[in-house]
């Protein structure tokens, strides 16, 4: 029999080449999906505006102007989205709020992805008793009213923005861990993992080099679906006054202020709400599109 010997590098090359073409195909499919493409454009616009927009506007987000309290939106005054009760420009505040909401969305999601992927791959890869115990813990945590948990954490340790990242990340990892575990179990049965094992690669290296790259698609899909839920969570806390604190602002804070003052100034509620809803909807559409793109046989 003719046995061909592959070195570790060969194996990695074969895998990475296959991986790249799979993902670039998926990206092409994603761009063909009209809803996803539109969402991608809207989301990029909101992100770019939030990051760079404030530099081009004449007002600052903390600048109070007692002569222009509750100005309705107008082109002439330069307050395109109007002003609030302190005479601050709403547009600039929304963009600043967007920076915060989006970065909390991304950072807290990353925290939960790191926890979830580590936890899920370990449980899935090693299996057996360890897996049973680890998944039972997840099951128990699932049953908890986790948002209330976050609130208690915020109460006990004070309203600190870094803690907010951590607390949200710490409760959102459960779903990720479950999905990653399931995928890991199916991937570890594949031949190329057997091959790596027979080459004497350590478990750690196999997880890092072979399992996680193959999970990338699933992880990306769940990131796009997790970011909106994190943004909602942050806004929820901020709405209650337990999240982001003045002078900083986020969409949740703005919506909370807006809902209190909607009787006098509807724009304070509608515009931040619009930005938030557009972002959430876009992320959802992108997530759905990505799922279809990465797994075309399902549809």
């Amino acid at each position: 029999m003719n046995i061909k010997h592959y070195s570790k590098d060969d194996l990695d090359n074969i895998l990475s080449v296959k991986g790249n073409s799979l993902y670039s195909d998926a990206f092409k499919r994603l761009l063909k999906n009209k809803a996803s493409l539109t969402s991608l454009i809207i989301l990029s616009l909101i992100t770019l505006l939030s990051v760079f927009g404030p530099y081009f506007l004449q007002y600052d987000f903390y600048e109070t102007d007692w002569n222009s309290i509750y100005l309705p939106p107008s082109l002439e005054s330069g307050h395109y989205f109007g002003t609030d009760g302190n005479g601050r420009d709403l547009l600039v505040r929304i963009l600043y709020g967007g920076r915060l909401s989006l970065s909390i969305g991304i950072i807290a999601t990353l925290v939960s992805v790191i926890i979830g992927v580590t936890y899920g791959t370990i449980a899935g890869y090693f299996g057996g008793k360890l897996d049973t115990i680890m998944m039972r813990i997840v099951e128990i945590l699932y049953a908890m009213p986790y948002l209330i948990f976050v609130i208690i954490l915020m109460v006990v340790f004070g309203r600190n923005i870094y803690l907010l990242f951590l607390a949200i990340g710490a409760v959102e990892w459960l779903t990720m861990a479950r999905i990653v575990r399931g995928q890991t179990i199916s991937i570890k049965e594949k031949e190329f993992i057997e091959a790596s094992k027979s080459l004497g690669q350590s478990s750690f290296l196999i997880i890092i080099k072979h399992i996680i790259p193959n999970l990338a698609g699933t992880i990306i899909v769940y990131i796009t679906l997790m970011v909106p839920s994190v943004i909602i969570l942050e806004s929820f806390l901020s709405f209650l006054g337990l999240g982001v604190q003045e002078p900083l602002t986020s969409w949740g804070v703005l919506i909370s202020e807006g809902s209190r003052e909607m009787e006098t100034a509807w724009w304070l509620l509608i515009f931040p709400g619009l930005f938030m809803v557009l972002t959430l909807a876009s992320l959802n559409f992108i997530g759905d599109g990505l799922r279809d793109a990465l797994d075309p046989k399902e549809y």
Partner: peptide, 12 residues
């Protein structure tokens, strides 16, 4: 219903 969180929907 999925994209509009309750704290946006309720005030509106």
């Amino acid at each position: 219903g999925i994209c509009v969180p309750s704290f946006v929907l309720a005030p509106i």
